[in-house]
Design a protein around this nucleic acid. Structure first.
Lengths: 158, 158
DNA sequence: CAGAATTAAATGCGTTTGCAAATATCCCGG
DNA sequence: CCGGGATATTTGCAAACGCATTTAATTCTG
């Protein structure tokens, strides 16, 4: 038992081991995944926030901006500026919500769908690489655990 | 089958579903984990790169800066500046490598260890929350899958 | 139903980031 | 042992980021 453990009663990071600490491994993996995507995307004039917004919009229709910020994992102020650019490029459209004129809903355009489809093969390739050699049932169990974890830490109901 | 699937042969994101797409879930989870830690750390005068460097240094002794950048998942130029600050605060020390005077090894100081120990309870709490309600064996299987994934995508041997 | 409190989104502003270039050192072939 | 190419780190710079504030609209409360 280390000094720290003896004093605090908490197992320390050294005892768990970096390579067994799930948040560390997840940061390592997503760090590389995101960096690799970012490099690919730069060639298409897209940044990470723009790509994430398009990805979510390809699946969820007309969310509010604050919802989109949660789904896309982008700070709302950063998203606001990313949407400025996407709108300027004709990839999305902002529209005031019918029932609440403070709120804005975001729609993806046909050009936006096309832009997302152009980058999807690279995301799919990175995804395939990540799970290569991992059996289907292990993959499914992994995703099921992720879903529980998200349920544990999210602040919103979506 | 969607139009995209019929044309490209690739299952699209909509078919997989955001909530079943592992990289998406991992970004959601780590986004919140990191944002929550960052808020806690701001009070201690630490940023994410500084915290990550300290965390790695609490476990790995005297790595080269480029190794530390990989372990800590921080761009090397960003790390270089974070180390400037940490050194200024007396939490780490840079020392030219004995065998290669281009290279620099980084040592954590006693004050640096103390700083990491001060923030560890918050990291441990976020970790515990993330896995609350998840059985021990499921947790272990999850980490084992993460280790395979890291092996699949990493570029370095560490 | 008036006014306070809350919520949505955008914006100002200082900091941080990451790419690319610079600097310093090392290694290899001839 | 000299010069070209590789490697380790730092630094210049423009773009991106996040916090806090602002603006605008809605909802709650007495």
């Amino acid at each position: 038992m280390t000094d720290q453990r003896r004093i605090t009663g908490l197992p320390g990071l050294a005892e768990i081991g970096l390579g067994n600490f799930a948040p560390y491994l997840m940061n390592r993996i997503m760090g590389r995944y995101n960096a690799s995507l970012r490099a690919d995307l730069a060639g298409l004039g897209l940044t990470t926030p723009k790509m994430r917004a398009l990805a979510v919009l390809s699946v969820i229709d007309a969310p509010l901006i604050r919802e989109l910020a949660v789904y896309a994992v982008v700070e709302q102020s950063t998203l606001s500026r990313a949407l400025d650019q996407l709108a300027g490029e004709g990839l999305i459209q902002r529209e005031t919500d019918a029932g609440d004129s403070r709120a804005t809903r975001v729609h993806i355009t046909a050009a936006g769908c096309a832009a997302f489809e152009a980058m999807w093969p690279q995301m799919a390739a990175a995804y395939a690489r990540m799970f290569q050699g991992i059996p289907e049932d292990e993959h499914r169990a992994f995703v099921a655990t992720l879903q529980k974890m998200l349920g544990n830490i999210r602040k919103h109901d979506f």
